[in-house]
């Protein structure tokens, strides 16, 4: 059982530390739980996930993030990843010339102890099993990471990485953006397959439609850098019916 606790987190762009984007967010995720964070564009949802992962463009000016009670703020992004935090990118980077197989191999190797060598046979066996589970063609492994991928392929590649690296917590940043409904279903199916008692998920999305396919345990509505309302999956449905203007109305008393 693991816990990811976000406490009073304030985040700004590193360039402009005096202009916070996330303005005090508190949220606790436990293994096995799926938390959806919804909200209009520019409200700080993506910033929240990138700051937790340690993106250098963002600076945490106050508050803290604890993984099993230990602050991650002094940890480099690669240390946070090895500790069990996985960021599924909204816009995954292209890595020219580096095949998916080699890339994932380096990531798996990085999780082994000093002097411990990767068992290549076991690695490929595991990789192919995960690819079969996610219905990904094996030819995919020799392609350079995200290079020339369609939007759907990029997101499936993210899910494959998540499946291989087996994080304790996955921060999924707008995983549904840029996907048509078929691609969205495939990606959602992948996430559902990885769901289980060992994984906690923070699912960031602008659209309720993703939550039809990945049903969350909790829904949080974010507006202007704060969580203004929390509830269960019905909150997402209510939000879909009433629209984000409704959030603005509830945000005003919350701020006053």
């Amino acid at each position: 059982m693991h816990t990811l606790e976000i406490r009073d987190l304030v985040v700004a762009l590193t360039e402009t530390p005096d202009k916070p984007i996330v303005k005090g967010v508190s949220l606790t995720i436990k293994s096995g739980e799926v938390h959806a964070v919804m909200g209009p564009n520019g409200t700080g949802k993506s910033t929240l996930s990138k700051a937790i992962a340690g993106h250098p463009d963002y600076t945490i000016t106050s508050g803290d993030v604890f993984l099993d009670g230990k602050s991650v703020l002094e940890m480099e992004p690669d240390e946070r990843a090895r500790a069990g935090i996985f960021l599924a990118f909204q816009y995954p980077s292209e890595i020219p010339g580096v095949s998916i197989a080699n890339f994932l191999r380096a990531a798996v190797q990085a999780r082994l102890g000093e002097g411990e060598d990767l068992d290549a046979v076991a690695y490929y066996k595991n990789l192919y099993a995960k690819m079969d589970m996610l219905k990904i063609d094996r030819k995919f492994t020799s392609r350079a990471v995200n290079e020339g991928f369609s939007g759907g392929e990029k997101k499936r590649c993210e899910i494959l990485q998540m499946a291989m690296l087996e994080p304790s917590f996955a921060l999924m940043d707008e995983t549904d953006s840029g996907l048509d409904i078929d691609a969205l279903k495939i990606v959602a199916e992948g996430v559902n397959q990885l769901r289980g008692p060992k994984l906690g998920v923070l699912l960031i999305t602008h659209y309720q439609r993703l939550l039809n396919h990945i049903v969350p345990d909790y829904v949080h509505v974010m507006y202007d850098g704060r969580i203004v309302k929390s509830g269960d999956k019905n909150l997402a449905i209510e939000l879909e019916a009433k629209g984000y203007d409704w959030v603005k109305d509830i945000a005003v008393p919350a701020m006053s």
Binding site: A53, G54, H55, P56, D57, E76, P77, D78, A81, R82, F86, L87, F89, P92, S93, E94, I95, F103, A106, A107, A110, R111, Q161, L165
Partner: peptide, 16 residues
């Protein structure tokens, strides 16, 4: 920088 962060976010240290 985005490429570097992407690799690091997978647990790969900067030298690797």
């Amino acid at each position: 920088a985005e490429q570097e962060f992407y690799l690091q976010s997978r647990g790969i240290d900067p030298a690797q």
